[in-house]
Amino acid sequence: MTANAGRTADALIVRAEEAESVPLPHGGGFRLLADAGATGGALGANRLVLKGGADGARPHYHALSSEMFYVLDGAVDFFLDGGMATVGRGGLVVVPPGMPHAFGAAHGGDADLIAVLTPGIERFGYFRALGRIQHGQDSFDSLLPEQDRYDVHFLDAADWQSARAGRTRTG
């Protein structure tokens, strides 16, 4: 047995065609790459494509995990602890536990990003629920009892919505 043989059995490989797709009604969607159970709790990862101006997540925080975003293409508006930042292709954002945040594709173009939550929380069910909510098959209120389970604690969206509306008006 070679030195790499033992580690190969523990490696997680997810080929593009194997990743579960959760489409969103605006034409974008999630690609579920790795859930916590598949990584021994180390992390959870997904890819998200958003059409121009589409929200990715309303304001929330994670009590237990940090979340990392890497922008593969386009630009993403991030609402971070009450402030706004736009991050373009090749940019990285790391949100520590407890920090309120939200994000969405900047107006004027689509966005493609990778999100990694560490330590991992089993969250594929959360993304599936978001897909159902976006398609009108379930209500947002159905997620409220699941906030601890998914470590997604929702906050008031008024400041985020106001900041996004201001970016639309100013370009």
Rank of each mutant, 00 (worst) to 15 (best):
W160V: 03
A45G: 11
F127S: 02
F154W: 09
D10H: 14
F124M: 08
A106F: 03
A34G: 09
V95W: 09
H135W: 08
A3C: 03
V116H: 09
A54V: 03
R31P: 03
R164G: 03
A165G: 06
S162L: 10
F140M: 12
T170E: 15
R123P: 01
G44E: 12
R149E: 13
L143F: 10
A75C: 10
A105Q: 01
A9G: 11
A9C: 01
A105N: 03
S21E: 14
E122H: 06
R89V: 09
V93R: 08
L144P: 01
R7C: 08
M68E: 12
G27D: 00
R164M: 11
A19N: 08
A16C: 05
G53M: 01
M68S: 14
V87I: 15
H60P: 07
R89A: 15
G82K: 02
G109Y: 03
Y126S: 02
L24F: 01
G98Y: 05
T39E: 05
A63T: 05
G56V: 00
H101E: 09
G44M: 15
S139R: 08
Y150F: 15
D141T: 14
M68R: 13
L155K: 06
G91K: 13
Y126F: 15
H107P: 09
L113A: 13
A34L: 07
N46P: 00
A34E: 09
A38I: 03
G6F: 07
R169P: 00
A19Q: 12
G88K: 10
P59G: 03
L32P: 04
L113P: 05
P145V: 10
R132E: 12
R128W: 12
T86A: 14
D55N: 12
D148W: 01
S65H: 10
L92R: 12
R123A: 12
G90C: 12
R132A: 14
H135T: 00
A163W: 03
V76T: 12
E17W: 06
S142Y: 00
I13A: 13
P25D: 00
D159H: 11
D10L: 15
W160Q: 07
T39R: 07
N4A: 15
G109Q: 13
D159L: 12
P100L: 08
F30D: 05
F140H: 04
M68H: 11
A9I: 12
D73C: 03
G56M: 00
T168W: 09
M68Y: 13
P23N: 08
F79E: 04
G108F: 11
Q161Y: 03
G104Y: 04
G109S: 13
D55L: 03
